[in-house]
């Protein structure tokens, strides 16, 4: 029996589905057990904070820009996983959060943007914007640009 191009295409789509399903199998791993890890060091879970807010992380991996082939991390707020900033240093700034409770998440990513299998999240309460010099002022030069 000779298979048509359409049949081969259907097989290709099925293979693609299998491949795609296998892609992120490690995405929800917590990062324990000696594997890659990332942890939000500041602010602490449950803190009351003012804006701009400096988020500091620590990670077991070397991080840097994509062009360096090193890992990076994604920062996103309130579970909006599709809307994130790409962070290539250990500090990032959040400056546009509405007052109230927010969940801040950090996920470790490979240079190819796939999940490195480590993430951390905290909940903070934004009480308002800081006035004058604040310890959260941007010293890192890390990018921000959130609009929540």
């Amino acid at each position: 029996m000779r298979m048509s191009f359409k049949s081969w295409s259907l097989i290709a789509v099925a293979l693609l589905a299998v491949t795609a399903c296998g892609e992120d199998s490690t995405a929800d791993a917590a990062g324990g057990g000696g594997g890659p890890a990332i942890s939000i060091e500041s602010p602490a879970d449950g803190d009351e904070v003012t804006l701009p807010l400096k988020v500091e992380v620590s990670t077991s991996e070397e991080i840097g820009p994509e062009e360096s082939g090193k890992n990076h991390w994604h920062l996103f707020v309130d579970g909006e996983e599709l809307e994130y900033t790409v962070e290539t240093t250990l500090e990032a700034m959040l400056d546009d959060l509405s007052p109230g409770e927010h969940m801040i998440s950090a996920t470790l990513q490979h240079a190819d943007h796939s999940s490195a299998g480590a993430s951390d999240e905290i909940t903070v309460t934004v009480t308002g914007a800081a006035t004058g010099n604040d310890e959260n002022d941007d010293e890192s030069g890390a990018d921000s640009g959130y609009d929540y």
């Binding site: 062009e67 360096s68 890992n71 490979h110 240079a111 190819d112 796939s114």
Partner: peptide, 14 residues
Amino acid sequence: LVTVHGGPSFVWLA
């Protein structure tokens, strides 16, 4: 790129 994930080969492939 998606096979090596990162490292020096990644830099060249990118």
